[in-house]
């Protein structure tokens, strides 16, 4: 059995989760505080991958990443970067596709913290960043873990967007979900079953891990 699709999937999920942690934390913090119309529009855009068919999102990303026009052409001409049918393109598409899974739980948790926690920190002379790092973030740990695991697990299961952007290039864009589809197309049900079982086991273990972690964290007075 060729395990490269599994490794590629894990690599894609790990990179996507890491990037989304860096981007998603400040974004979720801003979304939790701001009440502007601009914020509502940004939040709606971030949420779109939850409701749009993945093929629609994949189609528009394919157009955007195309080296023939717009953003894709600019990237290609200036930085010699091609996003379509490349691992880099998969990463960027995954970041966009999985973003609501990172920002959603973190934003909700931050909004549920009493406002007075941050206010108390400000009166002690602490900056917004110090307050976020020392007071807010440590008190939303269960939601942070949930967001990380959901983002990772969701990226593992990506199919429509990956197929549109990456196609099915072995060792480059052929992730596990594509390998399952490809195996079924070739009537190789044994391989399809192996890939599916591995994906099922991985995601099941992760979800169980989150439930166990959050069960212990639930003793916090904020739960």
């Amino acid at each position: 059995m060729d395990l490269s699709p599994i490794w590629l999937t894990l690599k894609l999920a790990a990179i996507t989760t890491l990037l989304l942690l860096i981007v998603g934390l400040p974004l979720a913090w801003w979304l939790s505080k701001s009440r502007s119309v601009f914020k509502i529009i940004v939040e709606a855009l971030i949420t779109m991958p939850l409701v749009l068919p993945p093929s629609v999102l994949g189609f528009y990303l394919l157009l955007a990443f195309s080296p023939q026009q717009g953003f894709g052409k600019w990237l290609h001409n200036i930085f010699d970067i091609q996003l379509v049918f490349s691992f880099k393109g998969l990463v960027l598409a995954s970041v966009i596709y999985s973003m609501p899974f990172m920002t959603g739980p973190i934003k909700s948790a931050l909004q549920q913290l009493p406002q007075s926690l941050a206010q108390a920190s400000y009166t002690l002379g602490k900056t917004q960043w110090q307050t976020f790092k020392s007071v807010l973030l440590p008190n939303i740990k269960p939601s942070l873990v949930t967001a990380l695991v959901l983002t990772f697990a969701h990226t593992l299961g990506e199919f429509g967007v990956v197929l549109m952007i990456g196609g099915n290039i072995p060792n480059v864009t052929r992730v596990a979900s594509i390998a399952v589809y490809d195996s079924v197309e070739r009537m190789d049900y044994a391989s399809a079953n192996n890939y599916s079982l591995i994906l099922f086991a991985l995601t099941f273990l992760m979800v169980i891990g989150v439930f166990v972690f959050n069960k212990y964290q639930a003793k916090s007075p904020l739960e």
């Binding site: 206010q119 108390a120 400000y122 009166t123 602490k126 900056t127 020392s134």
Partner: peptide
């Protein structure tokens, strides 16, 4: 608030869990 630096006791205590 950081520049004013008043000592503030909140009604809900606002302790950091």
């Amino acid at each position: 608030p950081q520049a004013r630096r008043v000592g503030f006791v909140f009604q809900d205590y606002a302790l950091f869990p």
